[in-house]
């Protein structure tokens, strides 16, 4: 599947015009990206560190996962929308940037992981009945994925 046409379209879209012409708008959107990143990171860290028994040990891990999942989704939506806007400004450059594709691969893997595995397992079943190693591995791989997505995103700016 070649995504080049999408990037070519994005490059000439109204989003690209706005992002290129108004530096101030770009910065505001970028700030929302960072704020949503903080929120996403916060919900991921609290959930995963709870699964590993590092924080909030006296709050059941089910409760922590239930309360963070909605805000995770809110943050993810803001991140994707604000990310799309930022991508529009440099669409063609990104298409040929390896780090960007590393980030997108991580993001896709992260979304599948959260909505197809992590969430169904952790929301539907009593955590006491789940294999403790499954819980630990979920926590470690979740933090690994989102760290990689965030860090490789920052690296796009330097490459």
């Amino acid at each position: 599947m070649d995504l080049l046409p999408f990037f070519e379209w994005l490059d000439t879209s109204i989003l690209a015009d706005i992002a290129k012409a108004y530096g101030g708008v770009f910065v505001v959107v970028q700030t929302f990206h960072l704020l949503a990143l903080s929120l996403l990171g916060g919900t991921v860290l609290v959930g995963d560190l709870r699964l590993l028994g590092v924080v909030m040990k006296d709050v059941p891990s089910q409760v922590v996962i239930q309360n963070t999942q909605k805000w995770f989704s809110v943050a993810l939506v803001i991140l994707i929308l604000s990310g799309l806007f930022q991508a529009a400004a440099v669409a063609m450059k990104l298409y040929y940037n390896e780090m960007f594709w590393a980030k997108m691969t991580g993001l896709a893997a992260g979304i599948v992981f959260v909505y197809a595995i992590r969430r169904p397992l952790l929301l539907r079943f009593d955590h006491d009945t789940i294999n403790p190693w499954a819980l630990r591995l979920i926590a470690v791989s979740s933090m690994t994925i989102w760290f990689t997505v965030a860090a490789s995103g920052r690296w796009i700016g330097f490459s």
Binding site: A109, I117, R118, L121, F125, W133, A134, L137, S141
Partner: peptide, 14 residues
Amino acid sequence: VLEKAAFVFATVVI
């Protein structure tokens, strides 16, 4: 199934 998927996925990710 979900547990197995989690094991496989986590290993691949790490």
